[in-house]
Design a protein around this nucleic acid. Structure first.
Lengths: 115, 115
DNA sequence: GTCATAATACGACCGCCATCGAAGCTTCCC
DNA sequence: GGGAAGCTTCGATGGCGGTCGTATTATGAC
């Protein structure tokens, strides 16, 4: 009863003005989360949660996506049973100029992508 | 006997090619360390360890400076009993383009400086 | 309806790191 | 020499976060 039967599942996203630098850095300092971000950036398109190549269980993966979403780094939406992910790159660039792109660049350069 | 009587105390610094992104992010994610970096950047000149405005004890402060130095973010040298600190901004810019400057900018913008 | 797939919620565990106080070392100054 | 200032080392403590397995829910296919 938490949600009407006919409504699609929705996901809450913070306005980036509400997000602190601390939160973004905490999100990006975790190696697995940085892999997710790197792979998403390299993909060039939205990706389902299950399509990432990371060495953790599904429940841990959910946790990491939550952290990234709450930090404003990604946007999520449902497509059937699949939860899709997009980078909020432009918004992040406005809020924390140069930060996300610098992290992604260095991360990809170090091989955090799909190999 | 660990050090000749007449030699000045020296400090070891990593070559930035040996430093990983992970290490730098771990260094910069800590709020106190980010305050140190911000205040150092804003000062525009080298600063002694004891001249920073942070809410931790001296021993904790030593720990934070060690982490920053080992991550290649700062360079340290002794002047008498005072240990001085410099940002390795140019080297960091070469190794991790845009990263340190982005963090410092956002950090200062959020008021991590001296107020 | 039944089943399979995708993801979540929950609870527990464990390791790491920031923190401190006390004691120690190095250098400077008188 | 004696003392003080500046920083370090050591050991202990506490809290937070990443991890997992299991059970559960939501959707789509048949």
């Amino acid at each position: 009863m938490a949600r009407p039967r006919t409504a699609a599942r929705t996901v809450d996203h913070p306005d980036l003005s509400e997000v602190a630098l601390q939160q973004v850095l905490e999100a990006l300092v975790e190696p697995v989360r940085r892999m997710l971000v790197s792979q998403l950036a390299q993909a060039g398109e939205d990706k389902g949660c299950g399509t990432f190549d990371v060495p953790v269980s599904a429940s841990t993966l959910t946790h990491h996506f939550n952290v990234l979403r709450e930090a404003g780094v990604i946007r999520q939406y449902y497509v059937g049973t699949t939860k899709m992910n997009t980078l909020r790159a432009d918004e992040m660039e406005e809020r924390f100029p140069g930060l996300l792109s610098a992290v992604v660049s260095s991360s990809v350069a170090e091989g955090a992508g799909v190999a």
